[in-house]
């Protein structure tokens, strides 16, 4: 279903205190008339402990954690009701993207599309009027991101 991003668009990568540093930014390339720095992947894992795909699967569907099904459909989870249509289906993302590419997409999708609806799952700063109970926290912690990525990597076509 899903395809790789073919155009290295965007990313005068704003904010994203936790993340920008670790990301791999290639040489500036020209997209149309604007000079942009293409950032397509994030190579370094966020933790030493490798991700656990079984845990990642739970994080994916848990409404209080990834809640990825809110926006994305996934054949592999068809036993769960109500998959979202806001984002592309995620079947086969493990074939279409490397883990490094997926990491950037989960950690900060705005690096690729500044106007995206998809939340940055590993970002704790530079946010606006966050409810007290979540203030200063990212949606997922570093290990949860790595667990989730291990699960996404199993979604082969």
């Amino acid at each position: 279903m899903s395809k790789k991003y073919t155009t290295p668009f965007v990313a005068a990568v704003a904010g994203g205190a936790v993340l920008a540093l670790a990301a791999v930014c290639a040489q500036p390339v020209s997209a149309g008339t604007v000079e942009v720095a293409a950032m397509t992947e994030m190579k370094d894992p966020l933790t030493k402990q490798p991700g656990d795909a079984a845990k990642g699967k739970g994080i994916f569907s848990n409404r209080k954690l990834g809640n990825c099904l809110a926006c994305h459909a996934l054949e592999a989870m068809k036993e769960q009701p109500f998959h979202g249509e806001v984002g592309p289906p995620l079947d086969g993302v493990g074939s279409n993207y490397s883990v490094a590419e997926l990491r950037l997409r989960v950690v900060d999708p705005k690096a690729l599309n500044p106007d995206t609806i998809m939340p940055a799952f590993y970002r704790a700063e530079g946010l606006n009027r966050v409810l007290k109970k979540f203030d200063g926290k990212s949606i997922l912690d570093a290990q949860q991101v790595e667990d989730l990525l291990a699960y996404l990597a199993t979604l082969k076509e």
Partner: peptide
């Protein structure tokens, strides 16, 4: 705004008619 960092427009201008979970 918020930890999910979304504006009203993200849901109501960009995706009307689309399912967000249920």
């Amino acid at each position: 705004r918020g930890q999910l960092d979304m504006a009203c427009k993200h849901c109501h201008e960009d995706f009307p008619g689309m399912r967000l979970r249920a």
